[in-house]
């Protein structure tokens, strides 16, 4: 197990190296000269040349990439052109907020999705099933930024107009109340996907011989579903949760922007607008690392769920 983990971690290295190269290249293509951005508008051509020299922008592309990589190994993602602060520090100060939001919405989405999916499968073709499926379909079709605005409209604007104070704050960070709307916005699509995949996976499992066998043993319908079927139905669910975690991270950028949530997503958009490319590339790399680690975690969960996969780990 440990050696498997090490192997998988090592396999991440080339992928993340490649990702860093792509991100660095894209940012290198970007129009706009950081040296110009850093200097006052009336700076002379000489000033600009000096600044370029001091930033190392005159060196060949690959050399610049090399020193960027060296920096990463030391935990140095460069310096913000705008604020002059180290990028790594900026990211670390914002990361907890993003992780909180992602974790909260993920957990809620998984719980809701599993329950709805199981009920829909066990009560196939009933109103429960139909209701869950229609809701889930709306959930996957709904743009989360729109849902965010609608929630603000209802819980903050409408509520304040009607009852004099907001039910939930439209922006900010710090309390559970601040967390509710962003978590719903970010988690809805996820919950909907989990519902759909749980239902279809569960229906597939419920057709299997070992489920018929479990019934023939005299187990109650609840035990058949909760113990024999659910764990077998879980693998596709774990897969989709892992795959769509990337979508969740993407969605968090929008969500953080709507609710002024102080995470790295909002930092990213601010940096994009300010053309602060060092920050942009640092954040994108951070997202890639988080996503890769989550994917690795998903592989480990497979092993926990399924002994057949576990035996391949050794």
């Amino acid at each position: 197990m440990t050696s498997f983990l090490l192997k998988r971690l090592l396999a991440l290295v080339p992928v993340l190296l490649g990702a860093s190269f792509i991100v660095f290249s894209i940012m290198h293509l970007t129009p706009g000269d950081p040296a110009v951005l850093l200097l006052p508008q009336d700076a002379s051509a000489e000033d600009i040349a000096v600044m370029r020299e001091s930033l190392g922008l005159n060196r060949p592309f690959l050399v610049q990439y090399g020193s960027f990589l060296q920096g990463i190994l030391r935990g140095d993602l460069g310096t913000s052109f705008r604020s002059g602060q180290p990028v790594a520090g900026l990211i670390m100060s914002r990361l907890p907020a993003t992780m909180q939001l992602a974790a909260a919405s993920l957990i809620v989405a998984i719980i809701i999705g599993l329950v709805a999916g199981i009920v829909a499968a066990v009560r196939q073709y009933t109103l429960w099933d139909g209701g869950a499926m229609v809701t889930a379909l709306l959930g996957v079709s709904m743009p989360n930024f729109w849902l965010g605005l609608m929630l603000i409209l209802f819980f903050s604007v409408f509520w304040a107009g009607r009852f004099g104070s907001v039910l939930l704050p439209a922006s900010g960070y710090g309390t559970i109340q601040h967390m509710i709307m962003p978590a719903i916005v970010l988690g809805t699509a996820h919950a909907a996907f989990v519902t759909r995949i749980t239902r279809s996976s569960m229906l597939e499992v419920l057709r299997q011989d070992y489920i018929r066998m479990a019934r023939a043993k005299g187990l109650s319908p609840f035990r058949v579903v909760a113990i024999h079927a659910l764990r077998n139905a879980l693998l596709p669910v774990v897969t989709i949760v892992g795959l769509r975690f990337g979508v969740l991270l993407g969605g968090s950028v929008v969500t953080e922007r709507i609710f002024a949530w102080p995470g790295i997503g909002r930092l990213l958009i601010d940096a994009v607008r300010a053309q602060d490319y060092a920050v942009v590339q640092g954040i994108i790399l951070t997202y890639a690392i988080i996503f890769s680690l989550v994917t690795l975690g998903v592989d480990l969960i497979y092993g926990l769920v399924d002994p057949r996969i576990r035996s391949q780990y050794r």
């Binding site: 299997q208 011989d209 070992y210 018929r212 066998m213 479990a214 019934r215 023939a216 043993k217 005299g218 187990l219 109650s220 024999h228 764990r231 077998n232 769920v305 399924d306 002994p307 057949r308």
Partner: peptide, 24 residues
């Protein structure tokens, strides 16, 4: 009442042993 009989007083063996056991 049926569940109390199944697997207790009346048991069954299905055709395909490969799929009759829960893999997990």
């Amino acid at each position: 009442e049926l569940r109390r009989l199944r697997g207790n007083r009346i048991s069954i063996i299905f055709q395909d042993p490969m799929t009759s056991l829960n893999p997990l």
